[in-house]
Structure formats: structure tokens, C-alpha cells
């Protein structure tokens, strides 16, 4: 079974997001800062009249560097329950098709990575979108 992944780059590394989650790719514009939430939330943007929360992949994966890059994009993820979340990445490379069984399991225990995929040109880490978007373990935010 061939699976398609959107390949993105953040902090110099390549990651893959299963195409079934990605609704759209947009340019980040005017992200309104959100105080009092975990740092990996970059803020909110106006997506065609709806408010979209944007998470920084870099921060979520606790990687180094800053988010402001000229090629940065927000991958708009849409889920079964119709909810949406934006994922801010440094660059969107393209789409890669990979055979399902060519995803290697990874030896090291990483919270957000499901496996490693191979493209013609290189390898990418397959993101575990469920885990990445699981925010229920975030600390209860201070009352104010």
C-alpha cells in the first residue's frame, strides 16, 4: 500500500505528515500571540473567517532555533471530528509516496515520531500526529 506524505523541513530536519490529515498549506500571516498557553503554541490566525490555532513544530519537538523563516508555512491539519490545527514549519518540500512497509520502526523512543520513511533523495521522520495534537496532558494553566 502506497502512502502519501507531505514532507516538511523544520530546524534542518525532514518530517512527513500523512496526507489524510493535511487540508491545506498556507502562508503564515499575522499570527496573534496567545499568552498563557504552552510555548509550542505560536498563536492564532484568521483562516478564511475562522480562528485557527497554530502550533510550532519546532517548539513541539523541542528543537533549536527560531520560527521566523521566509519560507515558513502553516500546514492546516483537519481531523475526523472536523477540528483543525495549524502546524508551523520552516518549509514545505513536497509530497512523497512511500510503500507502507518501507516505514522503519525507530529504535529510540521518541514521543512524536512514528517511524522513518525513505524518499528517493533522503529520509524523513514520520510524525505521529495523534501524539503531537494530544494536548490533554498540558499543565492546567495558571488562573491568570
Amino acid at each position: 500500500m502506497k502512502e502519501k506524505y507531505i514532507i516538511v523541513r523544520t530546524a534542518g530536519e525532514l518530517y512527513g505528515i500523512h496526507i489524510s490529515c493535511v487540508e491545506n498549506i498556507v502562508k503564515p500571516q499575522n499570527i496573534t500571540r496567545m499568552p498563557l498557553v504552552p510555548d509550542y503554541f505560536k498563536g492564532l490566525v484568521n483562516l478564511r473567517g475562522e480562528v485557527l490555532a497554530v502550533m510550532s513544530l519546532r517548539s513541539r519537538l523541542a528543537l533549536q532555533g527560531e520560527d521566523d523563516c521566509s519560507k515558513a508555512r502553516i500546514a492546516v491539519l483537519k481531523f475526523e471530528d472536523q477540528s483543525r490545527l495549524g502546524l508551523l514549519v520552516d518549509e514545505v518540500i513536497g509530497v512523497s509516496e512511500v510503500e507502507g512497509d518501507e516505514i522503519e520502526d525507530i529504535s529510540k523512543d521518541s514521543e512524536f515520531i512514528k517511524g522513518i520513511g525513505k524518499t528517493g533523495t533522503g529520509i524523513f521522520a514520520v510524525l505521529d500526529i495523534d501524539r503531537i495534537t494530544d494536548v490533554s496532558t498540558q499543565d492546567a494553566v495558571s488562573e491568570g
Binding site: L36, V51, A53
Partner: peptide, 27 residues
């Protein structure tokens, strides 16, 4: 009033967001 969605929760202080006339999101 626009909901913040299920992924962000800023506690009781921030109760939602709105899109202002100029297209910006305001909390």
C-alpha cells in the same frame, strides 16, 4: 465570538477570539 478550538485552552481568562474588521485575530 469565535471559539479557540479544542487544542488551546488559556484558562478562564481568555474566553475566545474574534476576527476584527481588518482581518486580525484578537483575543
Amino acid at each position: 465570538i469565535k471559539s479557540l478550538g479544542k487544542y488551546v485552552d488559556a484558562g478562564k481568562l481568555i474566553i475566545g477570539a474574534t476576527i476584527l474588521g481588518d482581518g486580525e485575530v484578537s483575543l
